[in-house]
Write a protein that binds this DNA or RNA. Sequence first.
DNA 1: ATTTACTCTATCTGTAAGATAGGATATATA
DNA 2: TATATATCCTATCTTACAGATAGAGTAAAT
Lengths: 146, 146
Amino acid sequence: MLSKKAKYAIKALLALADSEPEEPMRIADLARAEQIPPKFLELILLGLKNQGILQSRKGKGGGYLLARDPADIHLGQIVRIFDGPLAPVPCASQTAYVPCADCPDEAVCGVHLAMTEVRNATAKVLDGTTLASLRRKVRQVKLLPR
Amino acid sequence: MLSKKAKYAIKALLALADSEPEEPMRIADLARAEQIPPKFLELILLGLKNQGILQSRKGKGGGYLLARDPADIHLGQIVRIFDGPLAPVPCASQTAYVPCADCPDEAVCGVHLAMTEVRNATAKVLDGTTLASLRRKVRQVKLLPR
DNA sequence: ATTTACTCTATCTGTAAGATAGGATATATA
DNA sequence: TATATATCCTATCTTACAGATAGAGTAAAT
């Protein structure tokens, strides 16, 4: 399951990627636009800032803006920040590998084998999706007659 | 994250698929072989039985055995039993779809779009893997020189 | 009858998610 | 320099769930 934090983070980042590049957005505005509890969003944006995804400006006219190009911000990174490794089991993680204490031989473990495939499939999608590419897809759908 | 229940279930089922087809295995033996807390495994096997994956025999010489052909038991089914839908968000689930209360238009939601891709990639792996196919892979690795 | 092994319900503990509160700090501008 | 504005940061609350254990009940074999 994707946590609310990760979900809200993606929504907020997407909104920022869709707004004026040099114009900061306030927490309160972002929260209202994306239907997110403001104080909760505050925490999330702060986390994203500490990870170098966002930058902030204090005081009047302040707020948050993207610290990097939307084409350089991958969903995989966002999800990992809030929900940890993508792999369903620690022994299948590439970025945060931890062996199972009980497993005598990982190479021959069915769970390890199957879950490594799941983690690779997930990583392919999330590390292959950027804020820019996702925004592009959303826009494409918006143009479609419905 | 894969729950311990789902993980233990897969391990136990794999062990059963690897044992004599008509010979029941006792909870205690299965627990020892797979390093699973016995009373916890008990619950898990019971669940699998109630879902028609396993059958059981009581009394001396009793235990659990597969209720179906290993080629007919898919990992996706097992994971769904214990961990619910594969999709990271309910609005991306095929088997247990629930719309987001706050989402005005799902078709145009970036989270929905990306997470649908993740769910499809995950389902492709897990619904495409059976106890039989997984056992085959494990055996293949076992034959490899290491 | 007795042993064996599954069946079922209840319960316990710890941890984490989701969320809120409120004071501290920095910045713009009058 | 005072004041309004907005982020920064830490603490805390509540609830739910995962993981696990206990123990009495039931059915089958010998």
